[in-house]
């Protein structure tokens, strides 16, 4: 009975869909089944997973955080500037992650202390963080800091900061066997967040806030603190994504990750999270992110043009969800039939 429940869960459907997708893409294009290439291609979407996984927490609590894509750039340029200033690159990495945490905390405080919709707040911070990231090199230049490059500190703003140490580049270049480090890291991150969401009081509070914030208040949930932490995780995840991209691009740039917003949100909602709060799982987001990522990579490998990929991905997204809803309706119908027939039987 319990197994049947697992089989009927959305996560299982996603898992089946992922296997089916890999199977079909592999059959159509045997090149795609080259395991090394397949795993290497995860590098092109792990940053989306890094940001989408913790965003799930925020969305479960009926929030939203669209500022993550700017936090990526902010974390990246911070890492670069701190490293240029002569700090060890891994210490710079820690500072970049701290910036992500602070950015998340800023969002969290603003959201939890006011009744302003989080979409508007994080739209504001989306602009603000992007602006800060763009302007930071110029600002430091004005403040009189010296640069080592030829064109001065301000040039970092458009040329990026390069020459990062090999040990740092190895974070994304390296792999355990044929599994790239970032993919391992994302799986570990998912595990931690999953435990946090499903095995702790914090996780249950998130669902409660999402389902019924009033009930949460009356049952003594420290709403503000819980919310701040949710946004902090989101900021931290975005900063991780920014750091990962910095290593992958071998350069720190203020504008990286800017186009990831819609893929991130798509992964979360396809993963089963309700944008109005109260439902969603980390596993769902992880699977959905992988489905979308491999689909894109698989279609690209087939030589499908970018325009057509957008159409195909959009259509499949709708079809998958429509199928889910149809099944749901059919299930309800069957339940009712069963109830009726059992009554008639008596």
């Amino acid at each position: 009975m319990k197994w049947a429940r697992y089989l009927r869960s959305w996560e299982f459907a996603l898992f089946a869909l992922l296997l089916l997708e890999l199977g079909v893409l592999g059959l159509v294009n045997p090149v795609f089944f080259n395991l090394e290439n397949l795993l290497y291609s995860t590098l092109d979407f792990t940053h989306i997973l890094f940001a989408a996984l913790p965003l799930t927490l925020v969305i479960i609590a009926a929030g939203i955080d669209i500022s993550g894509v700017s936090v990526m750039g902010l974390a990246s340029i911070t890492l670069g500037l701190v490293w240029v200033a002569g700090v060890n690159v891994f210490a710079a990495l820690a500072v970049a992650l701290l910036v992500g945490v602070l950015a998340g905390a800023f969002n969290g405080f603003f959201v939890s202390r006011t009744d302003v919709n989080p979409l508007v707040i994080t739209l504001g911070t989306l602009f603000m963080f992007a602006g800060l990231a763009q302007g930071m090199p110029a600002l430091l230049d004005k403040l009189g800091f010296k640069a080592y490059g030829s064109a001065g500190l301000a040039a970092y703003q458009y040329e990026g900061i390069t020459g990062l140490p090999d040990a740092f580049i190895a974070l994304t270049e390296g792999s355990l066997g044929i599994v790239p480090y970032p993919f391992l890291a994302v799986l570990f991150f998912a595990l931690v967040l999953s435990l946090l969401l499903h095995k702790t009081r914090f996780g249950r509070y998130l669902y409660l806030i999402g389902v019924n914030p009033k009930a949460a208040v009356y049952s003594g949930v420290p709403i503000r603190r819980v919310l701040v932490w949710a946004y902090v995780f989101s900021g931290f995840g975005a900063a991780l994504a920014g750091v990962m991209l910095t290593s992958y691009f071998t350069s720190a740039r203020a504008d990286l990750g800017g186009d990831a917003l819609l893929p991130i949100i798509t992964a979360v909602v396809l993963g089963g999270a309700d944008i109005l709060g109260g439902s969603g799982t980390i596993l769902g987001t992880l699977l959905a992110g992988m489905i979308l990522g491999f689909l894109r990579q698989g279609l690209l490998a087939l030589g499908v043009t970018n325009d057509l990929i957008q159409v195909v991905v959009g259509s499949l997204l709708i079809l998958a969800m429509a199928a889910k809803q149809l099944l749901h309706v059919y299930g309800e119908y069957r339940l009712k039939r069963k109830a009726l027939s059992s009554r008639d039987g008596r």
Binding site: I265, V269, D307, V313, G314, L317, I318, M321, Q325, V329
Partner: peptide, 21 residues
């Protein structure tokens, strides 16, 4: 089809942008 609005419109966002091109 009862597709949640956010999914439906995220899907058509991609479809319409792709169609444009």
């Amino acid at each position: 089809l009862r597709v949640p609005p956010i999914i439906m419109t995220l899907g058509t966002l991609g479809i319409y942008r792709g169609l444009m091109r």
